[in-house]
Design a protein around this nucleic acid. Structure first.
Length: 709
RNA sequence: GGGCGCUUAGCUCAGUUGGUAGAGCAUCUCAUUUACACUGAGAGGGUCAUAGGUUCGAGUCCUAUAGCGCCCACCA
């Protein structure tokens, strides 16, 4: 029995993956009888809008390691793959593509745009699936789900209806984050805080001086707010009216006292623009003040701005100041005023707060059970400090705007009466006439925030509420994903899971960090430092990339992906290949079952190995794959190869048949068991060698072998 | 403003309940065709950010300080 002198990763990998797929063992239903207790990981659905990146490669590797390990340990292991339509994310990618072609999404009728993005997504879906296979993922393709599958959409709709009936969903006319470029509202998580340097204007507002960086919003300001305890303004009473000269003529302003005002800041007095500022909106709500829109949804001034109407706010700003100046209303202008502006996390355009009717989800009642479950440690976080981070966020949670003004996504199943405004949630599309006034109904034009559907992923994919899979595999065992999306996704899955199924969706949360470039910098197209994981698998083999991604990669910490490191593990793969080749080359006369009486030294070697196995198993059970991988690596290379094989050479090359048999027994035992230990990390090469092993009682593949004990 | 981390060898990072500092890469010396040069044998290199404290004993626990980073937040 001989292995070829060189390991050819490219040839072997495709062949071996096919062998696995044909075996059917990715599907837990096909596993041998010993696999009884379920073990479940739901794969984070990849955004079907591009290629697999280094982060995906890490997800695939860690989750495959867990799945293979549990499968070898006799679990009925299910790793369920999926893809996400990724609503806004995908639409943005597609819009960029359109832009390059000189087109805009606003020129394309919605139905056609939806179809185009669907085609684009489906093409990417196929692409991502084949790249996932390339990574060696032992996931059950027969159970693959897509967030737009009919059954998933049905689950999402049922949840929406249930939430609505429970009074947790409401249609609210609140201030929202509006991206003027993308023409949609965004959740608070979808905005960034960016520091900007602007001019800061001190304007005379009657007897007061107010400061602002945004004079263009000030046309409708007719409330002037100060702190109730501010002695400087004690002569002004709440509700008092004053007459003053403003941008476009005389106005009447009303004094408002509110303790949100910081007496230390500026003059301690400000005017408010409730339609375009969240703080001001809050004040207006508390005091029941009028709100008026100044800027339209495209960022242009409305007729209230008088002569400035129709102008873009950026163009109007200086002109407005000029006018105020000519009226003697500008007290001073501070240059280089640094302040924080909310921006769209995709295009960096300044968010224009707007009041708009949207669908909101009340979060506090959903967060409470999640907080309890986490505090009771029903969900274990790795690394642990994510427990605190999650709790902090959940305890300070605010209502979630779940509607988006984009076509790509799951349509919100609601209708509004065009006559009386009555709202109907109609998940089966059966209500056609307003029950109240008989008026005709208009379908809601919006789609769900993509996280509203992916937040339901663990139970939706398993066929909640009635399927056998749901009963068998839920709650799932591990949720492994990027720490970055703890709030976007993980926290919401916990809330939805508890709300709908009354159970936690997963017992363990394993959060990996970012994959950075070799210098520890974030990969980005503009920097040109993006490492394509598939290039690395191509160059060094998938096994080398996998173990290279895992060794030393503690959860929560970002990882510098250095090609040299992968190269090092390619060398290790070669080492594994050559050591196996050597052992197999020296099996002359070897009889597997013949009795050998080992020397005391050999017995100690085996005992040491057993000790190693125990330690590695302990690391695996504690989710410390980074140390487990390192230990196996170290043992195989520096103990098995450098010491044990070297020591046995004299026996192997000698003439004493008994001694030779002892050596063969020892080497084969440790080799076979080591290959099993290595299998979760380096599945391809270990499987290829296993297939060539001349041993009896061999299973169909190493993938379903017993983990060494 | 609040919260959460990090600081250990030249670099990237481990270090599980406190018990004489570890790995990979890099560097240096030696071996020269050995299953494997994608190799082997060996070496150098750290007052574990700083200052206190608890302890028989602290990289590890506590307090403070400094530097770095991340997240959340309604200072016009």
């Amino acid at each position: 029995m001989e292995l070829p002198p060189q390991y050819n990763a490219k040839e072997v990998e495709d062949k071996i993956y096919q062998l696995w797929e044909k075996s059917g063992f990715f599907n837990p239903d096909n596993l041998p009888a010993r696999h009884k207790k379920p073990f479940t990981i739901i794969m984070p659905p990849a955004n079907a809008n591009g290629n697999l990146h280094a982060g995906h490669a890490l997800v695939m590797t860690i989750e495959d390691i867990m799945t293979r390990y549990k499968r070898m340990n006799g679990f009925k292991a299910l790793w369920l793959p999926g893809l996400d339509h990724a609503g806004f994310e995908t639409q943005v990618v597609y819009e960029k593509k359109l832009e390059k072609e000189g087109k805009s999404r606003f020129q394309i009728p919605p139905e056609q745009l939806y179809k185009e993005i669907m085609d684009f997504t489906l093409a990417n879906k196929t692409n991502i699936e084949s790249q996932t296979r390339k990574m060696g993922a032992s996931c059950d393709w027969s159970r693959e789900k897509f967030t737009l599958d009919a059954d998933i959409v049905k689950t999402v709709y049922n949840t929406f209806e249930k939430l609505y009936k429970d009074g947790l969903i409401y249609r609210g006319k609140k201030i929202i984050n509006w991206c003027p470029k993308h023409q949609t509202s965004l959740s608070d998580l979808e905005t960034n805080d960016t520091e900007k340097v602007d001019k800061f204007y001190y304007l005379k507002y009657g007897p007061f001086t107010i400061a602002t960086s945004r004079p263009e919003t000030k046309f409708g300001d007719k409330y002037v707010v100060m702190h109730p305890k501010d002695k400087r303004y004690k002569d002004y009473k709440d509700g008092q009216k004053i007459e003053l000269e403003w941008i476009n003529g005389p106005i009447t302003a009303t004094i408002v006292k509110d303790d949100v005002i910081d007496m230390e800041f500026g003059t301690g007095v400000m005017t408010i623009t409730p339609w375009h500022d969240a703080v001001d909106f809050g004040i207006a709500e508390r005091h029941n003040l009028e709100k008026e829109q100044i800027i339209d949804f495209y960022g242009k001034l409305l007729p209230i701005a008088g002569e400035f109407a129709g102008m873009k706010i950026t163009e109007a700003r200086q002109l407005i100041i000029d006018k105020l100046q000519s009226k003697g209303l500008v007290e001073k202008v501070e240059e280089n005023y640094k302040h924080i502006v909310k921006t769209c996390y995709k295009c960096n355009a300044s968010i224009e707060p707007q009041i708009k009717e949207q669908w909101f989800l009340k979060m506090k009642p959903l967060a409470e059970p999640a907080i309890k479950a986490i505090e009771k440690n029903q969900i274990k976080f790795m690394p642990e400090h994510y427990k605190k981070i999650s709790l902090h966020w959940l305890k300070n949670i605010i209502d979630w705007n779940i509607s988006r003004q984009i076509v790509w996504g799951i349509p919100i199943p609601a209708k509004t009466c065009e006559k009386c405004g009555e709202i109907y949630v109609d998940i089966n599309n059966k209500i056609n006439v307003c029950k109240k006034c008989g008026g005709s109904l208009k379908k809601d034009p919006d789609t769900f925030d993509t996280w509203f559907s992916s937040g339901q992923w663990p139970y939706a994919t398993l066929g909640f509420p009635k399927s056998k899979d749901f009963k068998t595999f839920y709650p799932t065992d591990v949720m492994e994903t990027a720490g970055e999306i703890i709030f976007f996704w993980v926290a919401r899955m916990i809330m939805f899971g508890l709300y709908n199924t009354k159970k936690i969706p997963f017992k363990n949360v394993y959060l990996h960090g970012l994959v950075l470039d070799a210098k520890g910098q974030k990969m980005s197209k503009s920097k040109g430092n993006v490492i394509n994981p598939l290039d690395l698998t191509d160059k060094y083999g998938t096994d080398a990339l996998r173990i290279g991604l895992v060794v030393g990669n503690t959860p929560g910490t970002s990882l510098a992906l250095d090609e040299n490191k992968i190269k090092g593990y390619r060398n290790f793969a070669t080492k594994v290949w050559n050591a196996s080749r050597f052992v197999l080359m020296n099996l002359e006369g070897y009889k597997e079952n013949s009795k050998v009486s080992l020397d005391a030294k050999d017995k100690k070697t085996l005992k040491d190995f057993q000790k190693e196995v125990k330690e590695i198993t302990k690391e695996m059970d504690s989710f410390r794959f980074y140390t487990a991988a390192e230990k196996i690596y170290h043992y195989f290379w520096h103990t098995f190869c450098d010491k044990i094989i070297e020591e046995q050479k004299t026996k192997l090359y000698g003439t004493d048949a008994k001694e030779k048999a002892k050596a063969q027994y020892l080497l084969m035992t440790i080799l076979v068991e080591s290959l099993k230990l290595l299998h979760p990390f380096m599945p391809f090469i270990t499987e290829e060698i296993y297939q060539q092993l001349p041993i009896k009682g061999k299973k169909q593949c190493i993938m379903i072998e017993d983990w060494p004990a």
